[in-house]
């Protein structure tokens, strides 16, 4: 096993980490603004993945345009679903006890996961990669799967896009202002609840996008929602709740960590996210990039 093998592992870990980042950044963003940890975030991601599967059976297979269309439509659909959840449900619980918020989103998780089971059943599925992304790329002397490289391009693009949105646009200013001083923003004549709804939809959009990307990276089944939400918790805990940069760092640590630990200790790899999460919570509960809660 030469260096190629390790590079292959690295690419694999990084691409898993990138998908994780896209989903976890949504969770983190929503928490940052709404102060609600959304247990159902993983379910939205799963819905995204299954929607991508269903839609891909309708579109011509193998074409890159079909896949781009999936990447366009599915996250939008998930964001709309988010709109349908935010207005009647989430709005009622902002600022209430943590317990009630957690329970509400947990109830949603139960409903959405079971709805997925009723609609798509328990089979293992995946989306065929478009021809253009199906092969491998020659990189020096090694062949790397094109799709993983594609994700390694999309992930940073999303990260930069989010950064740009949050720190270089008026919408981003409003979101950040709503995080720190919601009353003041409201007093300045901004419709804060609309900002919150938009942020929630953005979070759902990210979950949907992660689902689409995952559907062609690995097999999808009914367990991926639960699995991903716990990984997301681990990521936001490691990086710091509400911090996008922290989410990126946390995702890459987890993705690469799992990929490399899997090699000598395949059993320990499953435990790794929990272990990393517990460790960080004990030594630095607010995460690597977060701030202590007042």
């Amino acid at each position: 096993m030469g260096i190629e093998f390790y590079l292959f592992l690295l690419i694999n870990g990084l691409s898993q980490g990138m998908v994780l980042f896209i989903v976890a950044s949504g969770l983190s963003l929503v928490f940052g603004v709404l102060r609600v940890i959304n247990f159902a975030h993983g379910s939205l991601y799963m819905i995204g993945a299954f929607l991508a599967f269903s839609l891909s059976t309708l579109l011509p297979a193998g074409s890159i345009f079909s896949f781009l269309l999936l990447m366009l439509l599915v996250p939008l659909a998930v964001a709309l679903l988010g709109l349908g959840l935010e207005i009647p449900l989430f709005r009622r619980i902002y600022g209430k006890e943590h317990l009630l918020q957690l329970l509400l989103t947990y109830a949603l998780l139960l409903i959405l996961d079971d709805a997925c089971r009723l609609i798509w059943g328990g089979d293992i599925r995946n989306v065929a990669r478009p021809d253009l992304l199906a092969g491998s790329i020659k990189f020096f002397d090694m062949f790397l799967p094109t799709y993983n490289v594609f994700i390694l391009v999309v992930g940073p693009l999303i990260a930069v896009g989010l950064w740009f949105l949050l720190y270089r646009t008026r919408a981003g200013n409003l979101i950040r202002a709503a995080v720190s001083h919601p009353e003041m923003v409201g007093a300045l004549g901004v419709n804060v609840s609309r900002v919150m709804t938009a942020t929630f939809m953005l979070g759902c959009w990210l979950a949907g996008l992660g689902g689409v990307l995952m559907s062609a990276l690995a097999n999808i089944d009914l367990g991926i929602g639960m699995e991903k939400i716990i990984e997301c918790f681990a990521v936001v805990v490691i990086g710091g709740l509400g911090s996008i940069g922290g989410a990126l760092l946390g995702s890459l640590i987890l993705g690469v960590g799992v990929a490399f630990i899997q090699l000598p200790l395949s059993r320990a790899a499953i435990v790794f996210p929990y272990f990393a999460m517990a460790l960080i919570l004990i030594i630095r509960p607010w995460g690597l990039f977060g701030k202590p809660e007042r």
């Binding site: 940890i37 943590h98 957690l102 716990i230 918790f233 681990a234 805990v237 709740l241 929990y274 999460m277 517990a278 919570l281 004990i282 509960p285 607010w286 809660e293």
Partner: peptide, 10 residues
């Protein structure tokens, strides 16, 4: 608060 909930979950 939330951190306690997540740590017990972990």
């Amino acid at each position: 608060g939330l951190y306690f909930a997540i740590l017990t979950l972990a």
